[in-house]
């Protein structure tokens, strides 16, 4: 089953109330939020109503919010090589 990946590229501020309602129904709260919805007629119709504001792509799998957050996070860039407590124990 495939999914629509919908990203809000332009804000819904200043749009008619109906358009903002569609954004709310899809779960797009602020710019650059990404949501995944299954490929269905109803979702396609909702996307048609806000097509000027969003970027849409069809993907195989929906990412969970946790996965999306993990994908944004940079690598820590360090690892602990030796612990001071352990080193003291070894020295004694």
């Amino acid at each position: 089953m495939s999914y629509f990946r919908i990203t809000l590229m332009r804000s819904g501020i200043g749009m008619p109330q109906k358009t903002q309602g569609v954004l709310k129904a899809l779960g797009l709260k602020k710019r650059m939020t990404t949501v995944y919805h299954p490929v269905t007629q109803s979702v396609a119709g909702q996307i048609m109503r806000i097509k000027e504001l969003v970027d849409v792509k069809e993907v195989k799998r929906a990412l969970t919010p946790a996965e999306q957050k993990a994908a944004r996070r940079p690598a820590p860039g360090y690892y602990v090589e030796s612990r001071a407590a352990q080193a003291m124990k070894d020295w004694e």
């Binding site: 650059m32 990404t34 799998r61 944004r72």
Partner: peptide, 9 residues
């Protein structure tokens, strides 16, 4: 359909 990757990943 492509593998998922968000634009802010």
């Amino acid at each position: 359909p492509s593998t998922p990757s968000s634009p802010n990943a």
